[in-house]
Every structure is written in structure tokens, then in C-alpha cells.
Design a protein around this nucleic acid. Sequence first.
DNA 1: CTCTATAATGAAAACGATTTCAAATTTGTT
DNA 2: AACAAATTTGAAATCGTTTTCATTATAGAG
Lengths: 327, 327
Amino acid sequence: MITLKDIAQMADVSPSAVSRYLNGGSLSEEKSRRIRDAIAQTGYRPNQAAQTLRTGALKQVGVIVPKINSNSVSNVVAGINSVMAANGYSLLLGTTAGQDKKELHFLNLMQDNQVSGIIVMGTTMTPMKKDAFKSCRVPLVITGQNFGEICCVHHDDYGAMQALTEAMIARGRRKIVYVGVDEKDAATGLARRKAAFDALRQADLDAVYLLAQDYEVESGYQCAQQILALYPDTDGILCATDKLAHGVMKALKEAGKHLPEDVSICGVGDDWPDQLTTPTLTTARLYHEQCGEDAASILLQMIEGKTEDQPLRQIKLGYTILRRESL
Amino acid sequence: MITLKDIAQMADVSPSAVSRYLNGGSLSEEKSRRIRDAIAQTGYRPNQAAQTLRTGALKQVGVIVPKINSNSVSNVVAGINSVMAANGYSLLLGTTAGQDKKELHFLNLMQDNQVSGIIVMGTTMTPMKKDAFKSCRVPLVITGQNFGEICCVHHDDYGAMQALTEAMIARGRRKIVYVGVDEKDAATGLARRKAAFDALRQADLDAVYLLAQDYEVESGYQCAQQILALYPDTDGILCATDKLAHGVMKALKEAGKHLPEDVSICGVGDDWPDQLTTPTLTTARLYHEQCGEDAASILLQMIEGKTEDQPLRQIKLGYTILRRESL
DNA sequence: CTCTATAATGAAAACGATTTCAAATTTGTT
DNA sequence: AACAAATTTGAAATCGTTTTCATTATAGAG
């Protein structure tokens, strides 16, 4: 491996001179030229580990996600990446499968790595994790949720589901079922369910709640079968996600229901297949890629911010209701 | 920051002893105990940059992808991650947007980082890149393509499209159009198109070729409109990907065609919406996650392999034809 | 032409681990 | 009890940079 010292020898200057050439510092034209040539000839590239050790800073940011092969997650990561790459940072990825233990593991590992900052997606909050986040030695931003005391970028999950619920009520539906997901997830789980319930109560309507096993189409399908069996007079189904909604639609169609005449259906997410099904799916678009970009921007400000005490930044991103045939 | 030296002082031993405690080496019970206590008390964690600098090895592997927010890519990455994480490696992610310049940039950057190995997905081959791959100082595996002289894991793109084409011919279709993508991509572009053409020629049928602009549903939609205008008697359409196929189906349905009576359609990919459309889409399943796992396993072998000269490993993964209503 | 500010320079000391090596200690063998 | 072998130990060198600091060359001011 060719080192800075080698370059110094070749160019007949001191190592300090080479370092100054690379990082900016006063240096004569003549020596600059010689160093430039030596570097060009050898293809020398500085050893990052040495740089990191010496400076204590690494141009990497950690990204901790539950899983990478999910539409929303991968879009957020794409957003993060576009901003970070533009600023010369690369991404160190950690996937947790939703396990707190792994989340803490990566939080530690990344700090050991001396990343410049960390972004955590779709986490759930426990006292232990709150501590871990607070005592993180590098800037940290959370996406997808808002836990009050930590910088974050999140969607208006509540507003989106509220709007969908109101639209469904306005459409004349009265027997409405909500198909939700695990409420340990404060955004997708809790906030959306709560929004639906609040809006229904506001209209003096009863709320029926079914909890899907996971986020897959199949779970929506199963929930719909329960609905058919237990609440046959249902005329509206609100789903926490688009995939669930598609599963629900499939089951209802198979059961001979006419959509949307017999039952209205809504999802959240604006997944790409939403306009391919019959009927097309009414949904709320969330801005995942934007979310990643904003999170990255905030993190960059925190990383490169001069001042010691940074303000708490919390961004709530809006939604857009996409009214289609299924409502 | 608390260092190994601090621990040594606290435990009243030499730094070497602490290092031996961490890495294994002869050490008395007594000292082990004192060191263990000191570490527990302080929460000391070794500085990775120092370790990397000293040992020249970093438990990270680089993953270079065109974009992360794609179904197939994110699934491959998930596969890579599951194997790598299990072996204590984390992932350094680089996205190229298909630009060779960025690909080379990350290839260099990651080597500077002293990652243990690199996996490159869905790349295209140029002489310059072939050189770059060959001169890579760390083990390297390519996924999604086979360029002959580099370790790789790839799908049987040719076989899959051949089987689909033959099935469509057996179904009685005679006026078949192939909707493909950019052939700079040797797998998705070239191999699939070639398979379709070969199979058609084999059956003495003409091949009509339309090139989609990109991989989006909308492009399939546009291609289908061209087909309707230029080749109105088409009775079968083979698509390089499922998204294109869905766009095609949408356009045909809007044009009043009955599917599959009037026209048969096939895609490749087994995307999750394939069973939600009317008709459901006939497709070929590829094993993306498996691909990632296998690539990771190969890379691990190369990294941890004792011998200097490693054999060239090339894995071709099979496919499964999923025959559904659209054929 | 002198004197002071400024720019250019390299030696040497970090950064925080691992590893070599020789010395000191323990263990086992006769 | 005496010696060889094996184990335990810490001092010091090392990895490849950056940065401090004292020194020397250069330029600008009077």
C-alpha cells in the first residue's frame, strides 16, 4: 500500500507538506506541482482509517431501518442517500427486523465506527431506547415518528387517516371497520387508528377494529374474511396501509361484493399498483423520499453546525388524498 | 473518549494485557477479572478506526447498487444483509443511478475505507470497468449479470423468458410482441430479449420488438398504445418486467381488449401486485433474496478463505414459471 | 536598507489500537 | 532439588495520517 510518506519521498518534501497539499495550507507552487505529479503517478489515496483515527471524524452516516426491502423504507433511504451523497457522505446500513436488541447494537457499532451522524427509521420507543438515543455521542435524527424530545421528520399520519375517514363518512358510509397494524408503531399503528376512531366518534359512529398480523396483502385478505363473517353489513373499510387494502379488496371481490357500491375502501401509501386494480384504490400519498431528504438535511445541519447547542428540529410532512374509485 | 489505555490504568495492567483480553491471548484469571470489571464500569468500546489502521481489516462490505428503492434491488440487499449481519459484517451502501462515474467512485471510496469485500449489483460492462473490477484490491462479487471472468450470482434470465415465450406459443399465440428494456443491461435487457427472439425464431414466428423508456408502469402503458396503433392484430405480449406488463395490461383493458381472450401477456419478476389485477399476471419468479444471500456467502468465502488463489465462482439461479390468468 | 508581518517548511508528537519480543513467572519432569 | 518447557507479562514499535510548533524564507512598510 502506497502511503503519504511514500509520496513525500518521491516528491522530495516532508510528509507535512503532502498533508497540506491534500487538506489546504500554505505551500509553494513548486512543491505542489511535484506532489501532484507523484500522486498522479502512483494513484495514491489517503488511508481513511488513519484519517478517522487522527481527526475523529468519518464521512459516513449510519442508517438504521427495520428492513430494507420495503417500499416506504427504501424510498426514505433513497432520499437520505441523495442528500448525503451530494455532500460527500456515504451510508452505513443496519437492519433490525424490529428487534430492539439489534437496534441498540447498531447504535453502538456505528458510534464505534465514528460515523458523523445516525438516522433511525420507524423505531418504537422504550425507556431504554430513549436513554440510548439521548446519550448518543453523534447527532441523531428519527424518521417516521415523533417522540417529542428528539429531532425527527415524520408524516402526518393522523391527519391523513382523519381526512380519509371524514371522506368516507361524507360518502355516506355508516358501518365502518378499521383494519390496523401493531400499535407499538406509534405512527402507522397508533396514530392512524386513533385518527380513524376520533373522526368516527366525532360523527357519532361506532368503530370496529381489526388488527392485522403484519403488513402483507395476505393479512388484509384474512381480515376481510373476518369482516365478512362477523360484520356482514359493513359498508366501509379503512386500512392502515395500501397492501392491507388490496388484500381486503381481493377478499371482498371474491366474496361477490361489488366495489365500491357495496363497500368503500381506503388505504394509505400510494403504492404503485393502486391504479391497476379494479376498482382503483383511494389512498393518501405520503412523501417518503422527501422525508429522507429532510432528515438528511437536518442531520447535516447538526453535523456541520458551528454552535454547540442546537435547537430541537421536528418536521411534520403533509399528505395528499388521492380520491379514486374505491371510495 | 475512553481508551484501552484508560482501562489498562484502571485495572492496573499493561495495555497489551487489555488487548489480549479483548482478542484472546494468555492472561491470568486475576487480571482478566480486573479488566472485565473496568470495561463493565466504563462501557469501554474499542476504537474501530484504530483497529482498522493497525490490522488493515474492517468488518464492513461495500454494496454498490443503481438505486435502492427498487423491489428487486432492495430484496437482494436484504439477502446480502442477512448473511453478512450474521457474520458480524455491516453494509456500506453506494448508489450510482446507473452512472459509471459514480460506480468507480464508490469502488475507490470503499477500497479506501478498507472494506473486506464489495458486491456490485446490476452493473453494465465497459473495458474501463472491467479493469477497475480486476484491479480491485478486495474480493468482489457481481450480482445480476455474468461477465465471464468475475465471481457472480445471477438469474437465469434467458431460461425464464425462453420458457415464457414457449408457453405463449404453446397457448396458440402467433403474433407476438416483445417489450424490452435498455440492452446495456445484459440480463434484464439483452438476455431476456434474446431468449424471446430465439424461441420465436425456433417456432418460425416473427418477432416485433418495442423498447420501453424505463422500468415504470407508464412506459409499458405507452408501449401498449404503440402496439395498438401499429400492430393491431397482436395476440401476445412478452414483457421484460412485471411493471411493464401491468402498464401494458392497463392500456389494453382501457382499449376494450378482453384479456386473456384477445391477447396473452407475461412479465418477469413475481411482484406482489401480480395476483391483484384482472386478469392475474403470468410471470417468472426470480430469487432475489437468495441471490443476495449467495453473493454474500461467496464473498465471505473469498474474504475468509485461507488460500491465495481462489477459484472463480459463478452461480446461476433458476426460475419458476407462475402460470396465471393472463396467459 | 532595515525591520516587522506573513508565508512556507519539516521534525516530532499525537490519535488508539495490535503485535513482537525478551524477560519474568509458573508449571511439569526427572 | 534442579532443569526444561510452557505460560504470563509489559515495553516499545507500528499502522498512516494530521497538527503543533519552532524555524527559515519571503514580502511589504517605513
